[in-house]
Amino acid sequence: MTDKNMLLAVFSDLDPAAHAVEKLRELGLGDEHLNVISGIPITEAMMGRPHQWTNVPRLALGGALGGFLLGAYLAFVTPTTYPLNVGGQPVIPGPPSVVVLFELTMLGMLISTFVGVFLDSRFPSYTPKEYVPEISDGRIAILIECDPAQEVAIESAMTALGAESVKHAEAQTL
């Protein structure tokens, strides 16, 4: 059981939210205790946050390799099971194999990229989560994990920086 509390500070604009992140760091909260939630993609640099890690590029590469190997199997192995003479071409022809390899490599890469987003984001997830619908109306929220003793200081700092609301984050069914 964690004895940490979760606070949700909601800002109407980007600049005060970025200042709030800086202030929270000054109050002794590490980046791992903060999460920024927004209705549009805000880059880490804008908020002064560390770079977010994503496995999607590696998964895409893996998918491309898998697709290439499947294409190679279809293009180079399956013709030997039932050799067909097509217009005097070799049983395993060069240029047509490029088509099969290209399509399956691309398919593998794109499917694994799509699946990668699901895996990295843990989609689908229908369990209750800390969220307020105002976020999709353009608000920027900072989810803060803090000691109960820090709550008052954080709340007053966030309010001073222009937070519309600072409250205990309650997990709710989305």
């Binding site: 977010q52 999607v56 699901f118």
Partner: peptide
């Protein structure tokens, strides 16, 4: 799918959309 708009979700989504 339970999307909230966290930094991680946007990062994965943005990379995937560009790719």
């Amino acid at each position: 799918l339970g999307f909230r708009g966290t930094e991680g979700e946007w990062t994965h989504l943005r990379f995937a959309m560009n790719l």
